[in-house]
Design a protein around this nucleic acid. Structure first.
Length: 1119
RNA sequence: GGGCCUGUAGCUCAGGUGGUUAGAGCGCUACACUGAUAAUGUAGAGGUCCGUGGUUCGAGUCCACGCAGGCCCA
């Protein structure tokens, strides 16, 4: 069999053909089944939602996932990858509502919940076809035939089981969370509803700066000059109705505060006010600056003030104060509330730099009070439940005696009530009371933006609403500790974004008031004294059976019972004491669905226990960095809470894919890249390679199609060329690779040993990069090897070996070596460019008699063979490359073409081992730069001119501050000084009167000039070139030119490589004639000529070689 | 407002532990090569290493404060 040859390759065609091959031959299945019984490498697929079309960023994210699964397969691990679909949630609902032209209000009215959910079920898989296409076309291997789907009954059952386990551990509880709430509509509002246009409006509200009286105790004593001083913290609010619920004051820890002695403008009483330093100017008039405090009389317009003390926010943390409006209090509040706590949201933009905090009426307030352990001010309702001081209609409860029954926002009153001349908004009434009580520092109207309910147009309150929570805070320490065992790429996301998030954890709010999602499986009696959490379908059926017996249900559940709403809402259970139990109406956060996938994808614990256990926890997951608080968290939280383990050991958080200008891609802006078009035009492999090689996955990628084209040309083009070169000659020679019969590397020519050594280094590096989850480094190492070492150096300089006519040992070794390199490269690159690598691998296999695998993806990656790594050879080759480059640059400077042979190159040698290294590759250098001999000159020659410079690293560490002086002295060394230090190995200098003994290691000596020679140098390496062209050299140059012209002729005439020719020429130039006769054998060999004759008038092509005219004619000789 | 990431040549990116000519590829310019040829090689031009301070004999690298862009959260 021959190695396939290609005139032209299309990477897109390669992908299509290879894909077909994979599917026809079930290669993916085999890549898993052939590893049966081997160690498993577990990967979890984060489920995408198929209700939108996939974008180019999905190609990026999935390439990252694919790479490591394929790499591990290559290493012999069994890697199962179950696909999955995320199917629940708000985006699906919104899409359906848009499609049907309805709003949430219409659900249950214009459309039944049943029909609505049926629509959601359809919509969520709308683009599954496109997703599957993308998956296949980009070469992402994931099991699409048996994916997990979060809306399926089995999946939900597993989720319920997890919830029950949490419930049994007392980690599931009902509490409240502060959310936007519309008393007028009697409903909570989602952030989506709050983002509707027109909800935020500028309104004028009564704002109050209240005076909170500081208690004088150990903590606060530094604020008091004497026991009688009245120290007040000033705190600002635009919602005075929340002041009776005040439970803490929040300050910025880094903000600077001051204590100001002054007087209250309403009561004229002396106070010491605490507020942010930056805001003093806002409240105290510059004009009052010089008025003495003693001169103040009650009623004066200008109020004197004096800044007497300055301190940081941290200094007043935990300072206690008297409750401002003590309608409701109790022992717990007295102990834990009414103190100063830190608030990260506090600024000095407006207000006083201190924020009044009412835990149940603000989202920030709720968060910081929870973190600081401050209880909320609540009262008991008739059912003995805790409720806030404002009821669900927006009125004060009766405990707030002065304002009981009053609406907290004036907009909640009817228009008639508001038009009554005596009507005063509650905020104003509160302000008046505070002024009278010497508790208001300042009252004024304040205009700000405030959210309104889109249904009723009335202002929204932030209000505590019932919610179910997972008590993640109970295991916060374990969450933090176990996170430290996870290998995050990049590490900063693990310690920073994720770590900080865990440090500031609040309980996970599980409740969602929606329709399309996993229902919360909790049933409660009306008096809420009894509760049941259902953990399986069987359990539900048993409970329903009992309930039917008690007469609450008509019959048992049917087999095909759907666990979704509305069906599950109709299930009434019976409590142990015989009471009716209704389901808590909430759905759960969809993030719980996806976080449950390690268990629910296998329907564990109801089925597949073995599979589950073998695949937990994941070795590797990867998703966008935006999933940090999403999937990465939910996986981690569930695993820690239920199993006290991590859910994944390694995680890559990849960045965004931006357009080439660094802007976010969006359909609206029209800068989104269509993934299908890209894959089709450039092929999956160049696209994947570009994405990985161009930037680390965790950095944002500026996606530029030009870059894909460059990868295609530069890397894939070069590699394909290299293969084609191999295939062309190997086929001519009928070379068949037989791995069982290759000579050991040690018996091969030095040049082969070198590239094999480089290959081993590459295998070693790439393997460790993959192991470290550094795909970008792996890709770059592979492409550097292919472009620089393999193609530009090994193949280019080995061409002569391939051109020889007979297949001798040397040529065979060249084939074997090149085959080995290409084959290993195919394996190494296969995780990143799976189609192309397989194509290459199979092309090579076709000409091999060895046992090769059906696909590169079924093969095993060999380990690097350390014994084949020859460090000295690598160094030698570096010298060869540098010397060649230097000589080339000299030739260029002198305009002497490489075809013109030169006599000699001179290389100064200061270290004997350098000579050894260069001698090893001398032949190579001579061929590459077309020079007859290499001469090494050492000191003994006496012609070297040396330079010396200090070894900064070494001297700097030793002498530090004296470096400048030392360096000056060394740079001023004379020729004799250099000779002296070389001779003695030491040299004494004097700096600032101190004697310093320099050794040879303290300096670097180089030779950068040879007087009278043409010299170039790079680092410590210097070369000198003899550019005299003798007659003999000139003739040889001419003969080479002749070869060149004849080769051109052969090519122009379309001769085959193996055709033999007869050459006739005519020239009137003596030098040329001499050259052609002197070098006749050489010319004949090079051009595969059987004869070379002068015939006076050749009648062929006329050439001009360095001004000499010659007429050349060639004819094919039939053999 | 908070957390995190990024900022080096026109573009995309490298630049252990601080060490004295800051690199590569692409692009550009010029040249060479012409049996890998829709290839290839060589050379050249191109830099406020985001800014300002600081530490140090010495900072692209360490520290502080900023600026710009991005993501997440509020």
């Amino acid at each position: 069999m021959k190695y396939p040859e290609f005139k032209k390759v299309s990477y897109s065609e390669i992908a299509k053909d290879t894909l077909k091959f994979w599917e026809d031959n079930k290669i993916f299945d085999k890549s898993v089944s052939t590893r049966e019984g081997k160690d498993t490498f577990t990967f979890y697929e984060g489920p995408p939602s198929a209700n939108g079309t996939p974008g180019i960023h999905h190609v990026m994210a999935r390439t990252v996932k694919d790479i490591f699964c394929r790499y591990k397969t290559l290493q012999g691990f069994q890697v199962k990858r179950k696909g999955g679909w995320d199917t629940h949630g708000l985006p699906v609902e919104l899409q359906v509502e848009k499609q049907l032209g309805i709003t949430k209000d219409d659900i249950g009215k214009k459309i039944s919940v049943e029909d609505y959910n049926a629509k959601c079920r359809e919509a969520v898989m709308k683009f599954k076809g496109e997703w599957d296409d993308l998956t296949r076309q980009m070469g992402y291997w994931v099991d699409l035939d048996n994916p997990y789907v979060t809306f399926e009954k089995e999946y939900i059952e597993s989720v319920w089981n997890l919830l029950k386990r949490l419930f049994d551990k007392d980690l599931l509880y009902k509490g409240y969370t502060v959310q936007p709430y519309s008393p007028a509509a009697g409903t909570g509002l989602s952030s989506h509803e709050l983002n509707q246009p027109g909800t935020y409006r500028d309104v004028k509200d009564t704002s109050v700066i209240a005076q909170f009286e500081v208690k004088n105790d150990d903590r606060s004593s530094f604020l008091f000059d004497d026991d009688n001083e009245d120290v007040r913290i000033l705190a600002w609010t635009t919602t005075p109705w929340t002041l009776p619920s005040n439970c803490a004051l929040a300050v910025g820890e880094k903000i600077t505060y001051v204590k100001v002695k002054t007087f209250n403008q309403y009561t004229g009483k002396p106070i010491s006010a605490v507020l942010a330093k930056d805001l003093v100017g806002k409240f105290f008039s510059e004009k009052a600056k010089d008025i003495a405090l003693e001169d103040y009389k009650s009623g004066d317009k200008l109020i004197p003030f004096e800044i007497v003390q300055e301190f940081k926010g941290t200094d007043i943390l935990e300072v206690r104060y008297e409750q401002l409006m003590p309608y409701v209090t109790n022992a717990e509040l007295e102990e834990k509330a009414f103190r100063v706590i830190p608030g990260d949201f506090v600024s000095t933009e407006d207000g006083t730099g201190v924020v009044h905090t009412a835990s149940v009426f603000g989202a920030d307030d709720f968060r910081v009070t929870q973190q600081a352990g401050v209880p909320s001010i609540m009262v008991k309702d008739e059912k003995d439940q805790d409720v806030p001081l404002v009821d669900k209609q927006g009125r004060f409860v009766e405990e707030v005696t002065d304002f009981a029954g009053k609406f907290v926002k004036e907009e909640y009153y009817s228009d008639e009530e508001r038009s009554n001349p005596d009507f005063k908004p509650t905020d104003v009434l509160i302000a008046i009371k505070l002024k009278e009580d010497n508790k208001a520092f300042k009252v004024e109207k304040y205009e700000h933006s405030y959210p309104h309910c889109w249904r009723t147009d009335k202002p929204v309150l932030y209000y505590p609403l019932d919610s179910w929570f997972i008590k993640t805070t109970a295991l916060k320490d374990r969450l933090v500790d176990l996170n430290k065992t996870i290998n995050w790429k990049p590490a900063s996301t693990g310690t920073g974004r994720f770590g900080n998030w865990l440090e500031n954890l609040v309980d996970w709010n599980l409740s969602r008031s929606r329709f399309w999602g996993t229902p919360l499986p909790i049933w409660v009696t009306e008096d809420r004294t009894e509760m049941k959490c259902i953990g399986s379908i069987e359990e539900l059926q048993n409970e329903v059976h009992k309930s039917a017996e008690a007469g609450f249900m008509k019959a048992d559940l049917p087999e095909d019972f759907d666990l979704h709403r509305p069906y599950v809402d109709d299930v009434v259970l019976v409590s142990d004491s015989g009471q009716k139990m209704m389901r808590e109406p909430d759905l759960i956060d969809v993030w719980f669905d996806s976080g449950a996938m390690p268990y629910a994808q296998w329907h564990y614990p109801f089925e597949n226990e073995e599979t589950y256990k073998a695949n937990y926890p994941a070795d590797f997951i990867a998703e966008g960095v935006d999933q940090t608080r999403g999937w990465f968290f939910t996986l981690h939280a569930i695993a820690v809470l239920l199993n006290d383990s991590v859910a994944y050991k390694n995680v890559i958080a990849n960045g965004l894919v931006l357009d080439k200008n660094g802007n976010k891609m969006s359909k609206r802006l029209g800068n989104a890249i269509n993934p299908f078009e890209t894959l089709d035009k450039y092929g999956a492999d160049p696209t994947r390679w570009y994405m990985i090689a161009n930037a680390n996955p965790w950095d944002n990628l500026k996606f530029d199609l030009e870059g894909v084209a460059e990868v295609q040309r530069k890397f894939f083009g070069t590699l394909t060329n290299t293969y084609s070169f191999f295939a062309l000659y190997a086929n001519l020679d009928g070379f068949q690779m037989d791995e069982s019969n290759v000579p050991p590397v040690s018996d091969r020519p030095r040049f082969d040993r070198w590239i094999i050594s480089e290959l081993q280094i590459l295998i070693k590096d790439v393997t460790s990069f993959y192991e470290d989850y550094e795909p970008t480094k792996a890709a770059r190492a592979i492409q550097d090897f292919v472009n620089d070492q393999l193609s530009n150096w090994y193949v280019r300089l080995s061409r002569k070996r391939f051109w020889r006519s007979e297949l001798n040992e040397d040529k065979k070794a060249a084939y074997e070596t090149l085959y080995e390199c290409l084959s290993a490269v195919a394996q190494l690159m296969s995780p990143i460019a799976p189609f192309y690598a397989d194509w290459m691998y199979k092309n090579l296999s076709k000409g091999s008699t060895s046992n090769t695998e059906e696909s590169v993806h079924l093969s095993l990656l060999p380990k690097a063979d350390e014994s084949k790594i020859d460090q000295a050879l690598t160094e030698s080759m570096h010298f060869a490359q540098s010397i060649s480059s230097l000589v080339h640059s000299l030739r260029k400077k002198e305009k002497i073409k490489v075809r013109q042979p030169l006599q000699k190159v001179l290389i100064p040698i200061l270290k004997p081992e350098v000579k050894e290294r260069i001698e090893a590759v001398e032949e190579l250098i001579k061929t590459e730069i077309n020079v007859k001999e290499v001469e090494y000159v050492d000191d003994a020659s006496g012609i070297l001119v040396k330079n010396i410079k200090p070894n900064f690293r070494k001297l700097g560490q030793q002498y530090g501050p004296k470096m400048k002086a030392i360096s000056g002295i060394i740079n001023g060394f004379s020729k004799d000084d250099i000779a002296a230090i070389e001779q003695d190995g030491s040299f004494e200098i004097e700096v600032d009167g101190e004697k310093i003994n320099l050794s040879l290691e303290d300096v670097e000596i180089t030779s950068q000039d040879i007087p009278g020679w043409l010299v170039a140098s790079e680092g410590a390496l210097t070369v000198a070139l003899d550019i005299t062209i003798s007659e003999e050299l000139k003739k040889e140059g001419l003969s080479r030119d002749m070869v060149n012209r004849i080769q051109n002729l052969r090519k122009d005439k379309g001769l085959e490589v193996q055709d033999k020719i007869a050459i006739k020429y005519a020239t009137g130039d003596d030098m040329m004639s001499a050259a052609l006769s002197d070098f006749a054998d050489y010319i004949k060999t090079e051009t595969q000529a059987t004869s070379l004759e002068s015939n006076g008038a050749a009648g062929g092509e006329k050439f001009d070689i360095d001004g000499i005219e010659i007429d050349v004619k060639i004819e094919v000789v039939k053999s």
